[in-house]
Amino acid sequence: MRRVPLLLAAALSLLAAPASAGPYDAGFRAFLDGTIAPAAREAGVPAAVIARELAGMTPDTSLPGLGKPGGKGAPPPVNYQAEFRAPGGYFRDSQFNGLVAKGRTLARRHASTLQRIEQRYGVPGRIVLAIWARESGYGAARIPKDALRTLATRAYMGQRRDFFAKETVAALQILADGHIRRQDMKSSWGGALGQPQFLPSSFLRHAVDFDGDGKRDIWNSAPDTLASIAAYLNWYGWVKGRDWGYEAVVPASVSCTREGPDRGQPISAWTAEGVRRVKERPFPAHEVPQPGFLLMPAGRFGPAFIATDNFYVLKSYNESDVYALFVGHLADRYGNNTGFVQDWRPIKTRSRGAVRKIQLQLEARGHDVGGADGLIGFKTRRSLGAAQEKAGKPATCWLE
Rank of each mutant, 00 (worst) to 15 (best):
G374L: 03
I376D: 11
G366A: 10
R381A: 00
A372Q: 09
G366P: 08
A364P: 04
G392L: 10
K393M: 10
G392H: 14
G370R: 02
A364I: 07
A391H: 07
L384V: 06
G371D: 12
A391S: 09
F378P: 15
A391N: 00
A387L: 02
A387Q: 15
G385Y: 05
F378C: 08
A364V: 11
F378Y: 15
R381K: 00
A395S: 13
P394V: 07
L384H: 01
E363F: 10
K379V: 06
K379G: 04
K390L: 08
P394W: 11
I376Q: 10
G370V: 04
G392Y: 13
K390Y: 05
T396K: 03
G374M: 07
G377P: 03
L362C: 06
F378H: 15
S383F: 06
A372M: 10
Q388V: 11
K393F: 07
R381W: 11
K393D: 13
G371P: 10
E389L: 08
Q388L: 04
G366H: 10
A364F: 13
S383I: 06
A372K: 11
L384A: 01
L384M: 05
A391L: 00
E363L: 06
L384T: 04
A386Y: 07
A386W: 08
T380C: 00
G377E: 04
G385I: 10
Q388K: 02
G371F: 14
V369N: 08
A364K: 15
A372E: 14
G371V: 15
A387N: 07
R365F: 03
A372P: 13
G392K: 11
F378L: 04
K379P: 02
A372D: 14
T380L: 05
A387M: 04
R382H: 01
Q388T: 09
T380K: 06
S383K: 08
F378S: 12
G374C: 02
I376F: 08
K393S: 05
A372H: 14
E389V: 08
L375F: 03
K390H: 08
L375W: 03
G392Q: 15
A372C: 09
E389K: 10
G370Q: 01
K379Y: 13
A395Y: 08
T396P: 00
S383Y: 04
E389R: 12
S383E: 10
G377Q: 02
G385D: 11
G377K: 02
L362G: 01
F378T: 14
A372I: 13
L375P: 00
A386R: 14
R365G: 02
F378K: 12
R365N: 02
D368V: 00
H367G: 08
F378N: 12
G385P: 10
R365M: 04
D373I: 12
H367D: 08
G374Y: 12
F378A: 11
A372S: 13
R382E: 00
F378R: 15
G371R: 14
D368H: 07
E389Y: 01
R381F: 01
K390A: 15
G371I: 14
G385R: 02
